[in-house]
Design a protein around this nucleic acid. Sequence first.
DNA 1: TTGTAGGCGTTATCAG
DNA 2: CTGATAACGCCTACAA
Lengths: 343, 343
Amino acid sequence: MHNPHATMDDIARECGLSKKTVSRVFCDSTAVKKATRDKVMEVAKRLRYEVNILARNLNQNQSGFIGVATPLDAMLPGNYFAEIFQGFRRAIPDESGYIFALFDTNSESFNDGEKLAKLYRQRRVDGLLVVALHTHDRFVGTLEQVHVPMVIVGEKSANRSVCSVFCDDEFGINQLCSYLYSLGHRRIAFVQGSNEYATSLRRKETFLQFMKSKGLEIPSGYIQPGDNSPRSGRAAAQILLQTTPRPTAIMAGNDAMAIAIMETLRAHNVRVPEDISVTGFDDDTASRQCSPLLTTAHQPISDMGEFGARKLIYAINSKTLPRGNTMMEPSLIIRESTASPRP
Amino acid sequence: MHNPHATMDDIARECGLSKKTVSRVFCDSTAVKKATRDKVMEVAKRLRYEVNILARNLNQNQSGFIGVATPLDAMLPGNYFAEIFQGFRRAIPDESGYIFALFDTNSESFNDGEKLAKLYRQRRVDGLLVVALHTHDRFVGTLEQVHVPMVIVGEKSANRSVCSVFCDDEFGINQLCSYLYSLGHRRIAFVQGSNEYATSLRRKETFLQFMKSKGLEIPSGYIQPGDNSPRSGRAAAQILLQTTPRPTAIMAGNDAMAIAIMETLRAHNVRVPEDISVTGFDDDTASRQCSPLLTTAHQPISDMGEFGARKLIYAINSKTLPRGNTMMEPSLIIRESTASPRP
DNA sequence: TTGTAGGCGTTATCAG
DNA sequence: CTGATAACGCCTACAA
């Protein structure tokens, strides 16, 4: 369908040089006479030559690809993945020569890790960045045995020896709780994120512990299930509106649900924050654009991505496995959606 | 850092067979005696052998990667890319053996196409799916010369000979316009999408033509700039609220802006659709979750993705270049955000 | 500064 | 059905 790609042989022949000299030019390594180099470059340009990465990779036993594994359905829409990925790209920019390959951990038979392990054994990827690990994912165990350089971003790995970078959920939730408490709230409801992420559970647990530590009761119906989607936020809000006693504050496991909750409340003529305060978690872009602006916990998402990717690249380059669990601290962002409860 | 991967040689030696026979087993092609095959498989399993894709690819001169090029900053957040990508995956599932590699066309020096062309010449990708082509992107021209198998999804390619799959914007806008017109609207404002996409301009142009064809005036200020973001929708709404005469309907170039417009109107105690009707474009998931539900034009986004990806794969397999421009028809989705204007 | 020989792990060709 | 030999295009080691 088109001229076969030119090879080093073609250039060498054309220049009356050996293959190796041409090779040297493109590794821009060891010394080559300037005249020779120029000539090679000129011919290369004319022939539209590019190094055949396939051959180079075979020779060097590396693929030049970094695998990014995540449940695509849940992660692609919204901002979370986009921000993490921005972080990845800061750590591994185009100039690095690495390319990102996208894998869907939701895909059938992916979560046992066998497929990802295979990708590594096949040398399709040099390392793996795992985003938003599912609690039911089995692959961490599998992958560990394969010794894939791997970093989990956004979730704490159950297995200590697997490298992960995540956010201190407990700290964030405690900050939000304390803030609401200091405003005078005592009847606080909680809308939980998806059961599929350990993070969601940790946030809820922390909330429960806080309430307990303050000796506060949690009326039945105050803990609502959810799945991080606006839809589930709306559903929870509908129920909470009819719960007696009505809560004076609602904490949501993430911003998307919090925003949906605010909209639902407003649609029922319940004012935020005058009648009910609402908080989120993540500090998603949307939390800075909704009305009222959302009080939330800022998660340094893209920094987590960047840090994780740096660890991975470092490990790959040094032919070691990435190590250590890094917890990044969220910060309380007070905006307009919270106020003291009405007397 | 770990045992070197086993190779076919290892297996051949262990089995007392030749490399080629082992190879045959893994190509599951030509006949191999069952006993031989079983033995090979058993040893392979024991040695945790996986075919070295690097070597296979070199031999077959293919990378097994499909490049997906898109302006990541704009496309990753939200639903549009996610839906297109779903379509890609329907056409090119995991079982196909292909993997998606992600490229950012926003990245410096990417939009002239040189970098993408290079990726192909380097054989890092076997083909390219381009999502959301920028008007300022120069790369189509460059890539055409390289004879990269390439399909543009979501935008009409300026160059006829480049394959593209896109939505019939004119049809969609005309449907929306006609519907509003039939409801009795005469003072219709338009909030334009980002200048960076030809689609946005085409939608606006179609609107202008419709108005002209009906002999309707367009008061100054009725055409508002925007960039597809909620933020720009809000800004436009603020201005339109103060424009006299006030429009009875506002058409937005996409759903995200339309939803932001509705929220802004409501925040100013202007009811939708009683006081002002609002329409979107795309039929994004959000348009089915906002309140009131948004009247819009449904774009078969994931189908566009699937169709485009099928064309690409077919071309790659048949060693041809994908051809033809396919226009998919949007459909009018009437929901709650539109009504007859008040007398 | 340049060239030669050999290997990376797979597959194709053509015998046997 | 199986095997020897040569390719794929690059790079490293060692000479010259």
